[in-house]
């Protein structure tokens, strides 16, 4: 067993955009194009990036909800990509997903009780009804909901409460890794804080590992230990939170960080404005995917894709501006 809970190596997930009559792909969208990272137990990795950069697809590929095109995903030392449906079912008890939209992630026709009971039934089939009931009520208490509300239906809850139900459902199978896909972006700011605190508390008490996907830098900063910055299907920079926020290396990260509001309004900092749009992922630019919008673009950036370089211990950047120290 390695020290990592999760190792992702050169993960690629392509969606075929068109299938020609004879079945070969005539075009594909490279949603995730060569993502690699490792995750320690108990750690939180934040994945940040603008919409369409492949954050969610990365998360779903790790869970095998979407079949990755190539690459390797090792969870607790076990290769996930080649698993059969039956083996996958066992694995899924160890990894769970918390969704963005609490209004779409709960079946409107099922009571909270049956939603949670169904999730619990995956973990152990042999419990009787009384034990199940006990467990459902425990789960509700765990996420800070009143157990008296178990027999209500999702539409009777507020967005924050629904998100708590979604979290309870994910916790029901006692996972060790939770992939939270923008868990608070659909919520009011006041509720966001409560949900984030709940996740933090749960992480401490249940020893959970998180992959936290968000486009909101302040949320990511509050929640993560390490942060990966994604751009157009690839990780451009990954490092500890404090390193990234104090000294971002990659030009894209620099632009991203410059957009964060500063606490001290007297401290003037230059805002880096990116020009142009994100290129079409079905036809990404050759070389570095960021080069058409980069102000430091060099000749080599247009032809060859940069490899990740460790500029500081644990701080990796994919950019030709930096040399291996």
């Amino acid at each position: 067993m390695s020290e990592w809970l999760l190792e992702v190596e050169d993960l690629k997930t392509y969606f075929s955009s068109q299938k020609s009559f004879f079945g070969h792909n005539s075009g594909s969208i490279k949603a995730v194009d060569g993502v690699s990272f490792q995750l320690k137990k108990g750690e939180t990795l934040g994945i940040v990036g603008e919409s369409g950069c492949g954050k969610s697809t990365t998360g779903r590929s790790i869970l095998r909800l979407i079949k990755p095109t190539s690459g390797s995903i090792k969870f607790e030392g076990v290769e996930v990509t080649g698993l059969s449906q039956g083996e996958l079912r066992k694995l899924r008890k160890r990894m769970q997903l918390v969704f963005q939209d609490p209004y779409a992630s709960l079946n409107p026709r099922m009571s909270v009780y049956s939603i949670l009971e169904e999730a619990l039934s995956v973990r152990n089939q042999n419990t009787n009804r009384m034990e199940r009931r006990e467990q459902v009520l425990e789960l509700l208490q765990l996420v800070g909901l009143n157990p008296n509300q178990a027999d209500k239906y999702p539409h009777e809850f507020s967005g924050g409460q629904r998100q708590r139900i979604g979290i309870a459902r994910a916790l029901a199978v006692q996972p060790s890794l939770i992939i939270a896909d923008e868990p608070v972006s659909a919520l009011d700011v006041s509720i966001q804080a409560q949900i984030l605190n709940l996740l933090k508390d749960l992480q401490e008490s249940l020893d959970l590992t998180f992959i936290f996907i968000s486009h909101d830098l302040s949320v990511i900063r509050h929640f993560s230990d390490r942060i990966a910055v994604m751009y157009l299907g690839g990780i451009v920079e990954i490092s500890r939170k404090d390193q990234l926020f104090s000294k971002p290396y990659h030009p894209y990260s620099q632009a991203l960080m410059s957009a964060v509001l500063k606490l001290d309004p007297t401290k003037k900092s230059e805002r880096i404005i990116l020009h142009g749009d994100v290129p079409n992922p079905s036809n990404p630019p050759r070389g570095c995917t960021f080069h058409p919008r980069c102000s430091h673009c060099m000749e080599i950036c247009k032809t060859e894709r940069p490899k990740a370089i460790e500029v500081e211990p644990g701080h990796f950047v994919s950019c030709y501006l930096y040399k291996q120290p």
């Binding site: 008890k93 997903l97 779409a104 992630s105 079946n107 026709r109 169904e118 995956v122």
Partner: peptide, 26 residues
């Protein structure tokens, strides 16, 4: 395509249960 279907798939619920408990009622 709804997220709650994805959620029960992520839980490892079998297809026939997904169909009978989550799809048909909706």
């Amino acid at each position: 395509e709804k997220e709650y279907i994805e959620a029960v798939q992520a839980l490892g619920i079998r297809d026939y249960k997904i169909i009978s408990r989550h799809i048909i009622p909706n």
